[in-house]
Write a protein that binds this DNA or RNA. Structure first.
Lengths: 208, 208, 208, 208
DNA sequence: AATGAATGAGGCTTCATTCAT
DNA sequence: CATGAATGAAGCCTCATTCAT
């Protein structure tokens, strides 16, 4: 479609451009990320960037799709969708997440920052992509569960949401603590253990 | 201190300026919010804005403090800090929140957007304010609870955090649904009832 | 004429305004001196300044005339115009200068800075004043000299000019040295002695 | 280093930009010289100026170095440093100066105005350059002189300084007279002759 | 007389984007 | 393909000056 030109480019240079864009977007956010800085970081000329990408927005969205693609592919490959027990699956998802965070720290950082991106220039087009993704996400990720173990009369949708939101909050807390301690990355090992404690708690409380 | 000039201004005009700033900041986020747009919206000259506020950052922080001040004052006035039962207190907090959301929809929207503000220009000074606030917030809001009703052996800190994160997530969901349905405001009545269902669930599961 | 309003003002306040203006003009130079800073320093309102002085330029020129007036009056009062010997008169002038520098350090600093003022807004009107003054200055200051002691055939105008320029250069050197050593004021005592050495040299060389 | 971009530019356009900057800086001084005026004069866009020069200050300093470079190179190439007689060397220096003034009238005007530049934004970085230059200047220019011809017991440092200050003053006088007569340039021929008369006077008085 | 709110032009600088080479 | 010179709108902010009170 639109990015044929870019894809037919020397793979090495493709990477340089993508990494440069990721780095700068993560550091500055969409608005303050200047194409100047990106091309300098990538070691290419100003003109070339706009030869491959119509404009700044297109580049951002492309980078987003690229990161999402990589991460999601890996993610779904690794998550065991056969596991019928919700908490076991949750535990597994946490594990895979940690692995991916370790493996693609930059991509994740970018996706994370993209998720918080406020720029009104990017938001509309962006929200769409996120919604489409997160729908399939939650639905697929937690389909075909064995709900029989939950306490009788419990609203299982609500219970699951609580757990998911708890882990969202917990992730933010972990990242926040790491930032507060000036660490480049959180201690994922420890985080995983703490996450497990939450799982055990929920299991004890939500299951019969 | 510094804002005497502004405070001694015609109350009507103060409001016009604050509302204009809130509106533009919410719409665009800090970086993209242009002072040009703010003054146009407020119907004042460029110079006047900087007569009252040293610079864009100062204005933002002032608006934040203003909103926070109003909301927080009202909030703590209304929350019953004597209630020893965690879930009753939570329920009460939810109620008060809904009332405030109804009363100050714009201020809340601003505070919410401020909470997500990534701009590196604003973050440092901002984080400080947030930390100071959120410390007193969570600490005071949930001090002197009767923890004896929780299941034995439960990590009460974790339990409370789960509940808080759940309501954070739930709030976001409610706002998101409203936005998706193009409503100007969520149906707070309904939301309050749904929140209550979450509380009942947690009560049943976390209490003895 | 124009400054009647100002002159009929409480003497104390007049001084406050003048001193404030002098201070700020010396610190910043004409262009960067902001009327804001001046009124703050003087403790008066913005409007009042422009009530008394049409505009910034008028104020500057008024301050200049004020300083020049004070200094010049004192200067001519003290210089002994009867002394017929050029070098004795020169020596005396140096002495009086030092006294005045000690007495009116701020006024002098202002006059000095005014002399170097480049601002194209001020220059034209200013140059005029300077020329008018320096003509009468040099002429009057060195009228009625006993020129018979100079070496025969010497161009006395040139000789005198050399001496004057030498002392101009020497003054600049003294000020420069003081600034380089971070002193607030030069050591006028020492400077006077060194100036005397120059006089002796010239006397020996230019006189018969 | 930093100005490669500018140097690799069409020589013609380089000149247009430099001349425009020189012209405006001379006319207005640093602070009042507006980049707007410079680009209009140079016939380029606002953006381009900042494409080549980080900011206004950098441009000024570049222009200064450019002028200084040109003038100084030419100057030292032409001054005969072998001449052991102080006054002969002085005479030669005057001659070379006049030639340069004729050849680079604008550059000189700029350097002269730069020397008086008071702007606190420019001064610090600037003083450094001047000191470095003037040290080598006076020292080198008057090294290896035959001092045996001076009158016995004369403080030769003082004598030389007098002569230098005299010529500083004389230069200012010449420029001032030209400006007063609305000439674009002084009559250098006449000035050179008058300078010679000063030299003869000093020679007669300071030498044995 | 005195205040200080209000103005708006103008200052420097950044930046996405285009285009001739 | 690739470059980087060139553009000009837009951003934040300052400042002398005016004017209603």
């Amino acid at each position: 479609m639109m990015f044929l030109k870019f894809h037919s480019l020397d793979e090495n240079k493709q990477q340089r451009i993508l990494n440069a864009a990721i780095k700068v977007y993560v550091q500055k956010g969409y608005d303050l990320a200047s194409t100047n800085e990106i091309v300098k970081e990538a070691g290419i000329s100003k003109g070339l960037l706009f030869h491959y990408f119509q404009n700044k927005k297109t580049l951002y969205l492309y980078v987003f799709d690229y990161c999402m693609g990589l991460v999601v592919t890996d993610f779904y490959e690794k998550v065991d969708m056969q596991e019928p027990d919700f908490f076991e699956r949750m535990r597994h998802i946490n594990l895979v997440k940690m692995e991916l965070l370790n493996r693609y720290p930059d991509l994740f950082r970018f996706l994370e920052s993209a998720y918080l991106e406020m720029s009104s220039e990017i938001r509309p087009e962006f929200q769409e992509r996120l919604k489409k993704f997160s729908e399939s996400n939650t639905d697929q990720l937690f389909a075909h569960l064995d709900t029989s173990k939950f306490k009788n009369g419990l609203d299982i949708q609500k219970a699951i949401k609580s757990v998911l939101w708890t882990f969202e909050g917990f992730s933010a807390e972990v990242l926040g603590r790491a930032k507060a301690m000036q660490l480049d990355q959180p201690d994922y090992e420890a985080a995983y253990k703490e996450a497990d404690a939450y799982i055990e708690m929920f299991k004890r409380c939500f299951y019969k």
